[in-house]
Amino acid sequence: MVSLTINGKTQQFDVPDDMPLLWVIRDMAGLTGTKFGCGMAQCGACTVHVDGAPLRACVMPVSAVAGKSVTTIEGLSADASHPVQRAWAELDVVQCGYCQSGQIMSAAALLKAKPEPSDADIDAALSGNLCRCGTYQRIRAAVHRAAELAKG
């Protein structure tokens, strides 16, 4: 049994200790917004926050985060009102959309650590998130926009 708090809800999961957090989130908790893309921390589609810090859920044994607080895309905001989500909507970032949960979670982590990131900061923080549709330019612009929105 592993205890996890996902999006504020504490749950017990009867899973092996070494099961990746990603599959506990998707297949056990039934939260499918967090995506499987590579299984080896190459693409960032599985990015969640654990105790506020970004984490690639596909390479993290669930036992390593036992008792911690996990936030997935579904829990980033109650109504897509997080500045990153608002900026993403405003700049029409998504295409196929599969990578975007991870992109948004990474961008949110960046803004938390660095509220007014430069282009270089965005490169450093978001180059771990792949997008085959090529939405990078809009993501960059949307991160800047989200920084403005967050300032209010």
Binding site: D121, L126, G128
Partner: peptide, 14 residues
């Protein structure tokens, strides 16, 4: 690591 992408995003304790 960079702000927003700490090493611990991918590299765990083991």
């Amino acid at each position: 690591g960079a702000e927003g992408l700490p090493c611990s995003t991918c590299h765990g304790e083991a």
